[in-house]
Write a protein that binds this DNA or RNA. Sequence first.
DNA 1: CGCATTCGACAATGG
DNA 2: GTCGAATGCG
Length: 722
Amino acid sequence: MESNVAAQGSLLAGLNTEQLSAVTWPNKSALVLAGAGSGKTRVLTTRIAWLLSTGQANPAGILGVTFTNKAAREMQTRLAAMVPVNVRAMWIGTFHGLCNRFLRLHHRDAGLPNTFQILDSADQMSAIKRLMKSLDVSDERFPPKAVQGFISGNKENGQRADVLSAGDPYTRKLIELYAAYDAQCRREGVVDFAELLLRSYEVLVANQALRAHYQARFSHILVDEFQDTNRLQYAWLKLLAGDMGSVFAVGDDDQSIYAFRGAEVGNMRSLLNDFAIAEPIRLEQNYRSAGNILTAANALIENNDGRLGKNLWTDAGEGEPIRLYEAYSDGEEASFIVDEVKALQRDGWNLAGMAVLYRSNAQSRVLEHALVNANLPYRIYGGLRFFERQEVKHALAYLRLVANPDDDNAVLRVINVPARGIGARTVENLLAVSREQGVSLWQAACAGGAGRSAGKVSDFVALIESLRARSENAELTLAEAVSLVVDASGLRAMYEADRKEGEERLANLDELINAAASFMPDDPQAALVEFLTAAALEAGEHQAEAGEDALQLMTVHAAKGLEFSAVFVSGLEEGLFPHENSMADRKGLEEERRLMYVAITRARQRLYLSCAQSRMLHGRSSYPLRSRFVEELPEDLLKSLSVKAAPRAERAAWAAPAASKPQRSAGSAGGYRIGQSVEHAKFGVGVVIDAEGADDDVRLQINFAEHGIKWLDLRYAKLTPA
DNA sequence: CGCATTCGACAATGG
DNA sequence: GTCGAATGCG
């Protein structure tokens, strides 16, 4: 017992009062409002360790839910280091990973084949397109993306097609497509991401015995990033908690940045109500950022309504001012960043400790260009992941057919890859047969059929059959089976013949074989199915190879949960950040503001904010206004680094019209220059984006924030510099 | 049927 | 600037 007490002591050492209170919270539900950098992950893992080491819970009673695989792994690793328990007995994982585990165990109750496969979003999209083609639905009136959004959105609200109704024919059609899509998935033995959750929820609802079993088992449910849960996830947690269980949720409503994909910040308030939690525990002491950075973040987020309320503080001192740079162009913004990074590097800063954040991936190109020219090593997060690569998906499709030949998606992906003379026409015929007879494409292909390509189709069938026979009977290891598929399918030969990108693709296929070799299945008998599942659920790292010291580039979304000594937030322009797709309503704008809050709070020591007066967007020049989020920061925290930027000072200067003669060639017309902010009595604020004429006859094209683009004649229009 | 080229839409994220 | 669909030619 003494060692137990000692162990507890060291577990709890170094926690502040609030953290300690959260970690040692009695066995009842709690909501921990954990600000950025307040030790959230530490609290969560320490609590589990504390529950285990004090004997309040056994490993099997723990259900730990995270949003990313990375977070789940981190929690497991940390736990393993803290307490000597069998980590595997605990259920720790993502919502999707846990639901998959549940459905594999109870596939019969869920009405799924034991080899059911998981569709990623791309697979889901092609399944939808295929379905719409077969039903002859116009993809102009019903964009597949919208159909996908409709289906996933409803699943995440826990609603099947049969409970939906609509007054308008458009929505009725969507509901019809939803029902047909689900039927198609059932026929093929596949589930999409949302289905994993909905199906396991429905099984628990329908099956009293199963529900009672898991409710009794999971005495402690702990949830990370609770602000990101959607309605279905919340219902799932509530169901598992039952009347007796408790939910210990950690989250930060100010860092909710996934509402656009269904996250319900309102779940935090619901949790307080439904689980009778009197008051959330607030973790407000920040151990990451300097004072000025926190002050800026607090001031920014104050502009949002309906917050649960929280103010970050630190005892680390004010630190440096926040640096602001307003560039002429996106290219110049990039070279500013490069210069600053080099300067910091000369001062002994680590490249890997610096990050450039942006709102959208497209912005990385200009930065990359500048970094390559400057010979600065960098690493980009985002983009194509390993298991999403064409060649890897091809190989996986063959493997899926080995596991389950009725997977029509997989058949369509590889029936003619590499080209084996089965063209669109033949595929059309197969699709027609499968539709008429209500069988899978595979079964249609096996039936043979007439036509010139019949022989080629039966060759394909024979290929898959032989792959299956050999991987099942010949006692091949998983890696050998993958290797066999790559060779026998002809994929290897195909990429060997491709001189342009074949080499890289072959390397990735070899990497896939390596991945198979080091894969550790829970059940060796089901190694292939587990491998395919892992490929779908963990599409792989965002190419984050360790190694050389490199500058980190990523979107703000990707930066959530990370921290850096120095952070550059770039592209702070209206329409970009906040993004134009989210500017229309207050909710969207508030989410953008939370995104900015996340961006700011990534910085430990130094924070740079930058924007450009002109930017190439969609292949053409735009002249955006500076982001409102910059204006929302306290002026005395900012230090302007650009001559032109001196934002507020410059305004004063412009208020007195320039005496010099306006010259178009100098980028100035009638005292205005392109890129300048102006204000119009009727149209409000805008930016000059073009000009024509000279002297007394000047016309300006202005992009107004509220009223769009207009040409104004300076002789009549009442304009003032803004 | 297979490959190459063109055209046009699009550009937030992750399981 | 990229990707996927559509088109056209050998």
